[in-house]
Design a protein around this nucleic acid. Structure first.
Lengths: 339, 339
DNA sequence: CTGAAAGCGCTTACAG
DNA sequence: CTGAAAGCGCTTACAG
C-alpha cells in the first residue's frame, strides 16, 4: 500500500501538495496536479480513510440504526430492502458510506451515541422499529445529525421522513366513497405508532368531511400484521350492520381481512371493498389484487440521505419531509382486468 | 471527547497503560486497571476507532457487498433482510461492525478492493446478485478474507456459504414420489447460477435413483421470478402427458405455477402437487399452503460471520459451508389442516 | 507490571 | 501555489 509520502517523493512535491490534490484540487497547479493524479493511478495510491478521519474528525460515514435481531423477533419492516437500496445509493453518490450500527453487548442506553463517537460518524439514520428505544434518546439529544424514518424525534439536530399518512387515509376513504360504499370501516395500526395514529386521523377526518356518520364499532385496532387484519375483519363481519368497505392501515392486514371475507363466503369487491396501505409486492399478487396507497419506498431512502447530508454540510435542520402516497387501484375495489 | 492522554493523566499513568487496559487487560495490575476503568466510565472516555485502525491496520469492520441499486432493478433477494439480521447480530457479538460498500461513481473493476484498502476492512461478505460482477475478481484474488453467499469464488482466502441445494432438490422429488406422484416435472432456476444448477442436478439424480424415466420436456427453465413459474407451468400443462407433480426451484416460481394450475381449472394438490424452494413468508400464506424446502435464512448470516471471523483471526480458510434445507410440508402436496 | 518514544498516514494553519 | 511542521489519538516494541 503506497502512502502519501511515497507518492509525494515520486512526484518531487511535499505530501501537503498531494493532500491538496485530493481535497482541494483547484488550489494546486494544473501540471503538478495531473502529474500527481497519474502517478497515484500508476502506483495504486489510495488515501487511508482512518488517517483522514483522525485528522479531520469526519469519517464520511453515516450510521444506520436498525435495531432488530434474532432475540427480538417479529418485527419486519414492510420494505426495508427498498429503503436500504435508496439510502445506500443516494449516500454513495455523495461519497458517504453506511455503517450498520449494532447494539453492543452491554446494552447501555447511550450505546448508539458511543458508537457514533468512537467512529466519528457524521450522522445517523434511524429506521423505526415500532418500539420505544431508550438508546435513541441520548443520540437525539446530542449534536449528531439524526434523521428518523416514520417517527418524529426530538433534538437539536433531528428531522424525519415519513409518508403523508393522514392524506393517504383520506384518499382511501374518498375512493371507497366514490365507488359507492357508505359503511366504511377501518382496521388501524397500533395507534401509539405515528403511522397508525395518522392513518386513523385521516380516516376520521374524511368520514366527517363526507358526512358519513362516525360509528365507533367500525374502528378496530390491529398491529400491522396479517393475523390481526384477519381477526379484525371477523369482528367487523359480526356487526349488526357490517361494513361494505374496509380501509386497512397496512397491506398485510388488508390481506388478512381479505382472507376472512373469503372464508365467510363473501366476495371482494362485490360484497366488501378493501383498501390497504403500503403497496407491498404481495398486494399485486394476491387475487383479486389489492387497492392500496403506495408508499414511496425508494423515496424514503433518498430523502433520508438528502436530509442527513444537508445537516452534515450546512448546519441547518431541514423540516420533516412528507412523501405523497399515490392511490393504486386494483381489483379489491372494483374489477381488475388481470384477474 | 476525552482522549487517552487525559484519562492517563487523571489516573497518574502513561497512555500506554491505559491502552493496555483496553486491549490486553490481564497484563496490567488489577488495581490500576480498576481505577482506569472506573475513571474512563466517569469521564466518558471512548477509544477513537480511527486512531486504533491507523495504528493497528485493523478496523474491526467487515464490508458487505450487495451490489444493487435503482439503476439495476429487478433483483430482489428472497430473504435479504433475514440474512442481514443474522450477519449483523453474529458480527456484532464478536465486536465487528458492518460497512455497506457501494460501487463508487467511477465504477472501475477494482472498486471494492479499493474501498477495502481505504477503510482497512478486515474482511468482506458478498451477497450474490445473480450476475457476474467483474468488481469481485480483484477482491477475490487479493489476500482479503472473502465469504460469498450462494456462489463459489476463487481466491487464496475465499470461501462460501450456501444451502445444500442438490440435497434439497432430491428430497423434494422423494417427497413427491412418496405421495404417489410418478410424472414429476421441474421448473429450474437459471442454470448459470449455482443454486439453479444444483437444484436441477438434485432433481435429475433423484429421478434416476427412483427409476423414473427422464423426460427432457419435464424440465423447464425459469428465472426464479413468479411470472416465469407461471409461464413454465402453462407450458407443462400443454404436454401430451402433463405432470402430476412439479418441483419448482424457488417459491416465487412455485406460486406462479400454482396460479397457472388454478387458472386451468385444476386443483392443487389433487391434480398436481407442488413443491417450492426457499420457504419465503408467502409460502405459508398462499392457499393451500406451499410445501417447500426451507433455507436457513438466519443461518446464512451466522455462518458467513463465523467464516469471515475465522479467516480474519486464524489465517485459515474454512471449507465451504452447506446448510441443510428441511422439508416443510404444507397443503400443496397433501391436505393442510389450516386451509 | 509500566513508561518513553516512535510510528501509523493523513490534514491544515502558517509562512513564504 | 507550495513546503515545513505540528497535530489528530491511538498502539507497540523496547527497555527497565
Amino acid at each position: 500500500m503506497a502512502t502519501i509520502r511515497e507518492l509525494a517523493r515520486l512526484c518531487g512535491v511535499s505530501s501537503a501538495t498531494v493532500s491538496r490534490v485530493f481535497n482541494n484540487p483547484e488550489v494546486v497547479n494544473a501540471q503538478t496536479r495531473e502529474l500527481i493524479l497519474s502517478t497515484a493511478e500508476r502506483i495504486g495510491y489510495l488515501p487511508n480513510e482512518s488517517a483522514r478521519t483522525l485528522a479531520t474528525k469526519r469519517s464520511r460515514m453515516v450510521g444506520l440504526i436498525w435495531d432488530t435481531d434474532h432475540r427480538r423477533p417479529g418485527w419486519r419492516h414492510p420494505f426495508f430492502q427498498e429503503i436500504l437500496i435508496g439510502l445506500k445509493t443516494a449516500l454513495s453518490e455523495r461519497g458517504y458510506h453506511l455503517l450498520m450500527l449494532a447494539t453492543s453487548e452491554d446494552g447501555t442506553p447511550d450505546d448508539f451515541l458511543r458508537a457514533v463517537r468512537r467512529h466519528n460518524l457524521d450522522g445517523v439514520v434511524f429506521i423505526d422499529n415500532g418500539r420505544d428505544d431508550p438508546s435513541l434518546q441520548p443520540l437525539a439529544a446530542s449534536e449528531v445529525p439524526c434523521v428518523s424514518l416514520d417517527r418524529p424525534i426530538q433534538g437539536p439536530r433531528t428531522t424525519y421522513v415519513t409518508s403523508d399518512n393522514a392524506d393517504g387515509a383520506r384518499e382511501a376513504v374518498r375512493h371507497l366513497h366514490a365507488t359507492g360504499r357508505r359503511v366504511i370501516a377501518t382496521i388501524t395500526g397500533p395507534t401509539r405508532t405515528r403511522p397508525g395514529a395518522e392513518r386513523l386521523r385521516g380516516y376520521l377526518e374524511e368520514m366527517a368531511a363526507l358526512g358519513l356518520a362516525h360509528r365507533p364499532e367500525l374502528v378496530v385496532e390491529g398491529d400491522f400484521y396479517l393475523s390481526s387484519g384477519y381477526a379484525a375483519m371477523r369482528a367487523l363481519l359480526e356487526l349488526e350492520e357490517p361494513p361494505d368497505a374496509v380501509f386497512a392501515a397496512g397491506d398485510e392486514m388488508a390481506i388478512g381481512a381479505l382472507r376472512a371475507v373469503t372464508e365467510a363466503g363473501l366476495k371482494v369487491p362485490e360484497d366488501i371493498a378493501l383498501v390497504g396501505f403500503d403497496d407491498i409486492e404481495l398486494a399485486a399478487l394476491v387475487p383479486p389484487g389489492l387497492t392500496t396507497l403506495a408508499q414511496d419506498k425508494a423515496g424514503f431512502g433518498t430523502a433520508a440521505a438528502a436530509a442527513v447530508i444537508t445537516m452534515i454540510n450546512e448546519d441547518v435542520t431541514p423540516p420533516p419531509r412528507l412523501l405523497p402516497t399515490p392511490l393504486v387501484v386494483r381489483g379489491s375495489t372494483g374489477p381488475d382486468p388481470r384477474f
